[in-house]
Amino acid sequence: MIKKTIFYFILIVSAIVFTYPFLWMFLASISPDKAIGNLVLLPSQVTLDNYRQMIAKIPIWRALLNSVIVSGLITTGVLVFGSMIGYALARLEFKGRNLIFYLIIFTMTIPFQITLIPQYILMVKLNWTDTYYALIVPYLINALGIIMFRQYFLSLPQSLIDAARIDGCGELRIIFRIIWPNSVPVILTVAILTFMTSWNEVLWPLIVIRKESLMTLPQLVTLFVVGGRAESQLGVKLASSVFLATPIVIAYAFFQKYFINSMVSTGQKE
């Protein structure tokens, strides 16, 4: 009994440690600037002024839209291409299949640091800096996504595919009409993982996007906080930070199980 109490105590303290900072940030963002210094639990005064100022200062809605577009298209691409390639690798026999499989594994081990600068130069040469292309195209195919699809498709019964072939389905139709409905868990996992990673990506946008109207949310917030336009108003900076965190937290509240599963599956890949 004592042991259990101690355990609960530890767990509750840890839960506070992991969540209270977010709560503080949220409360600070709705407090007037001069009250933030003394804020611990309850704000002495509630105001939306920080949010109003933030919206007036930076095109944050536009950045939100950009992030949705970019992450949405990347996720779609990863799902479509990933399942096509994963299917070919898992279910079709052709020369060079193993070679391609090992190539994919190999690309996963290349650190992105090595390709960062030449990829930027590539974007410059393609005239893609300051376009959505630069943000989206390099991420449309993702090695991890392919591998996850392949692993999952390997476990599907062959009879499913054979039946479809007898009905005269083409391979694309098999993938999207027969395989997809039977692969919801892996699709959700890959989708959440891809969406989250691209949503939180900040280094690449910092490099290829300079036009304010094309900036993604994390990029705009980073530059807003580091740069001078917040006019040293702490509350406004924190408001932008809350704004950045909120969409993912809301999604997490709904798809908690899938979030956790997808992150775990990246772990087990290694």
């Binding site: 910092l206 300079r210 304010e212 580091v226 740069g227």
Partner: peptide, 8 residues
């Protein structure tokens, strides 16, 4: 017109 896209 737009302000210079902020960096450091």
């Amino acid at each position: 017109f737009q302000p210079v896209p902020e960096g450091q």
